[in-house]
Design a protein around this nucleic acid. Structure first.
Lengths: 155, 155
DNA sequence: GTATCCGTAGCTAGCGTAGTTACAGACACT
DNA sequence: AGTGTCTGTAACTACGCTAGCTACGGATAC
């Protein structure tokens, strides 16, 4: 069983916002880049908003913006925002008459929690700013061999 | 979205086998401890067998046994056996006209793969023998205050 | 006042898990 | 040889979650 695409899409969204230099980006625009429906984007954006990563503005010219600098948002922040709760599911009600069944659940929980923390520590090492930098570097390298630092249009 | 209970049940199964001192354990017995159906156990046991962690013997007195010492089997082995493939799902076909959409997938894959490796490294630190030791210690502490090292019956 | 845009609800289709029953084949025991 | 045991595996059901889609109220800008 795999985790949902929410983490991947969440990072994609935040990278787009980071690249728009403070200008609000509409869910339609984001959906165009992710290649999905705008409502799907808004649903994921909600989770990012609740986590304090994104703010939004209503009305004409409105859209979403980063709530804090891209270099202060890590992939771990995104993961925690879109995949709350435990990573592994524990089986419930093992047989208490068996020594293994009696103690296995809390014991597994300890180890699985530690593993999830290790996962997050790894994700902590990458920022949205870092992802954006890769995207802009590759865009510059492929569209303009002179290496000019032109701001690429994000759409 | 959470991972399945297969990892938890897989560790439970292997711990039972480790505690049986080489005697085959039937899927019915295991199902009794896990508190589920025997076919479910056999299905998970299949994955463990394919991964080379378990062998089985048919017929009367048959059942499953560890294929190698419990101290040489880690939670990472179990995880890889029951949750093959990638941990995170990537969204497919983002817009190639967008600098972000063009490069985000391989970039995410790099970071997500590294994170999964960190997860496995953490799970690598715990062995089935370690889990069994905890179970036996707690069984001895609760059922016999004199601390005798009697072998607890696993059922 | 009108167009824009978010937040949210409701619905559908699809996938994977977990539970259950059933049965063929391998094996041990007498 | 016959019988009972146990695995391996298939088939089916029920359930939950995701992802895609439509729709609409409310906030906002012009």
């Amino acid at each position: 069983m795999h985790l949902s695409t929410r983490a991947a899409v969440g990072v994609h969204i935040l990278t787009l916002l980071a690249g728009s230099e403070g200008q609000p980006v509409s869910s339609e625009q984001v959906a165009g880049s992710v290649n999905t429906n705008a409502a799907v984007i808004r649903r994921i954006m909600q989770l990012l908003t609740r986590a304090g990563l994104v703010t939004s503005r209503l009305g004409t010219g409105g859209g979403a913006m980063l709530a804090r600098p891209a270099r202060d948002i890590t992939l771990a922040d995104v993961y925690r925002a879109v995949e709350p709760g435990a990573l592994f599911t524990l089986h419930e009600k093992p047989n208490p008459l068996c020594p293994v069944g009696r103690c296995i659940v809390p014991e597994l929980d300890r180890h699985f929690t530690r593993a999830r923390r290790a996962l997050e520590d790894s994700l902590e090492r990458t920022t949205i700013a870092g992802i954006l930098a890769v995207a802009l570097r590759q865009a510059g390298a492929t569209t303009n061999s002179s290496g000019a630092r032109k701001r690429a249009k994000l759409a």
